[in-house]
Design a protein around this nucleic acid. Structure first.
Length: 509
RNA sequence: GCGCCCGUAGCUCAGCUGGAUAGAGUGUUUGACUACGAAUCAAAAGGUCACAGGUUCGAAUCCUGUCGGGCGCGCCA
């Protein structure tokens, strides 16, 4: 059968068909493959319009007030940011939402601690660290004096009731936290369209309670109000506490209703660690039971837990790496390498920031998101092998070659004969380039930015190998133009891929 | 106890809807900078794909069970 099929295939793009056991091997016309692949590549490579007219809401980063940005926040922040860029590239309209954790009893405790042991000057000077110190102290003191817990709850009640003093302190804490976070976001190049946190939905809970009641879904259980999910094999979803206060799930449902009304999303993504899996399955099901068919468009994009040298992160115990420190050390190391290898580089500090931060971001988006990450300093600060700097280096090398080509009067745009790109190394590079748009779509389908990170790494590897095996610029003008055109396509694709996962691509490093 | 997820080379990970000799990086050993950038490239060594069954012409991949690990399971978020 294979032989009969092989004999019957007559396609101009297929150079030959060979039978190998039960397989048919198709060999493409290498010159045409090079020509067609390169014709499709420009600075927007991978762009599509499949998402036109569709909105994707992405809930990511979602930091808590009064907590400093640490490595545990990196996955949600960078996965969400990358997904935003990926869906943008596919023509969707994306709405990035930082769903701030700015509601709950812990903020009453913060205010309680501040009133007892803090003062304004100390907070202004110490910023978020001073707030963390108060938080830690509250827990220490509350162990000895449990009445503090009640005092904390009372302060939270004041926030809920709109007490001016409580609100003023709380807004002030929020402001300090956001300023600190925004500094980190600026370093990472991460942006949001909205900072609507949990408190934003405080006046939008009534609708959830009313609808659940009307639809007969809300039942009393041990004094609380819940939606029973036994038929779905899940524990009940808690909607109202015994004292009538709302819960996490209530606010998430209120936020989902609001987002559907406001944005009419095609999908609403929640980039949250997998330990909240049950929570999302529960309230997604509640929305479904409320009769909303778009419940199926709510997606928990879960990712693995972060630990530090084998132990769980803990702000309270001080077992934590702050992102500021990590980024600073990475940039510092990048600068040291630049001083050693490229002492004459202009804008050394700026490039060191691009490389140092790129290394951290790359690592966050390298493995499948479900993998747990155990942080080790030496691993995080490695710039060799499959790393951000490796891909950036390949990109910078392409830029360098293209500068040299321009000096020699070789223009990639003049390439019109591609016979020079028929060798195995060039063809492997071209094959990987040609798959890039498909990889971008798959990364979107699977909500998996690491697919892009890994693919651009393979392109960089293939090109580096090609570079060592073949001279790009030589006396043959036509061949040089073709190889320069391949170099340009690699440069554009690496830059594009790096951009999609949130990493800068310096032209020199 | 129940539920979700994970288990592939010493380490960190790829391996998509089952298909040809399971691949990278790192670490170890070794080689390559007087031609375009050595943050690079090349070579060697390194795997009972946790284990046991099953389905199939064919299983790392699908099904069942066992073991090991992470996480979760009502008034926190």
């Amino acid at each position: 059968i294979a032989q009969a099929l092989a004999a019957s295939i007559n396609d101009p793009e297929t150079a030959s068909v060979e039978v190998a056991g039960g397989y048919l091997n198709f060999f493409l016309n290498r010159t045409n493959f090079a020509r067609d692949t390169l014709a499709a590549i420009d600075g927007q490579f991978g762009h599509a319009n499949i998402g036109e007219g569709r909105v994707i809401c992405i809930d990511y980063s979602s930091i808590n007030i009064a907590k400093r940005f640490h490595i545990g926040h990196l996955s949600t922040t960078m996965i969400g940011h990358a997904l935003k860029r990926i869906f943008d590239a596919l023509g969707y309209r994306t709405v990035g939402i930082n769903h701030l954790g700015d509601w709950g009893t812990q903020f009453g405790k913060m205010i309680c601690a501040y009133k007892r042991w803090g003062d304004a000057a100390q907070i202004e000077a110490g910023g978020i660290d001073a707030m963390t110190a108060l938080y830690v102290r509250f827990h220490d003191e509350a162990e000895r004096d449990p009445s503090l817990e009640d005092e904390g709850r009372a302060w939270f009640k004041k926030i809920e009731d709109g007490d001016p003093e409580a609100l003023a302190i709380f807004d002030w804490f929020k402001d300090i936290t956001l300023k600190d976070a925004k500094r980190v976001y600026d370093k990472l190049g991460v942006t949001f369209d909205h900072y609507t946190g949990e408190s934003f939905y405080n006046d939008k809970m009534g609708r959830v309670i009313d609808e659940l009641t009307e639809k007969g879904l809300l039942i009393e259980s041990d004094g609380a109000r819940v939606v029973d999910l036994e038929a779905d094999g899940m524990p009940p979803c808690l909607i109202l506490k015994r004292d009538g206060a709302t819960l996490y799930a209530t606010r998430d449902i209120a936020a989902a209703l609001y987002r559907k009304d406001t944005f009419d999303f095609f999908k609403c993504l929640y980039v949250v660690a997998y330990h909240q899996d049950l929570h999302f399955r529960q309230w997604f099901r509640v929305v479904d039971k409320m009769g909303y068919p778009w419940a199926k468009d709510l997606v928990h994009v879960s990712y693995g837990m972060v630990s530090y040298e084998g132990q769980a992160l803990s702000t309270r115990k001080g077992h934590v790496i702050y992102l500021d420190d990590l980024l600073d050390r990475s940039v510092e190391k990048a600068l040291a390498i630049i001083e050693e290898k490229s002492p004459d580089l202009p804008d050394k500090e700026a490039v060191a920031r691009q490389v140092g931060i790129g290394a951290i971001v790359y690592t966050a988006l390298y493995a499948n998101r479900i993998k747990d990450i155990d942080f080790w300093w030496d691993r995080a600060l490695n710039f060799d092998g499959e790393t951000g700097p490796y891909v950036q280096y390949a990109h910078a090398r392409c830029c360098s070659l293209l500068r040299k080509a321009a000096d020699a009067g070789v223009r990639p745009a003049d390439a019109d004969s591609f016979a020079a790109l028929c060798d195995d190394e060039a063809q492997e590079t071209l094959r990987l380039l040609s798959r890039f748009p498909e990889i971008v779509r798959e990364a979107a389908d699977r909500y998996e930015p690491s697919m892009i990170t890994r693919h651009i790494t393979r392109i960089a590897q293939a090109y580096n190998k090609y570079y060592y095996e073949h001279r790009i610029l030589d006396d043959d003008a036509a061949a040089s133009a073709a190889r320069a055109r391949l170099t340009e396509a690699v440069r554009d694709t690496l830059k594009r891929g790096l951009w999609l996962v949130g990493i800068d691509a310096p032209e020199r490093m």
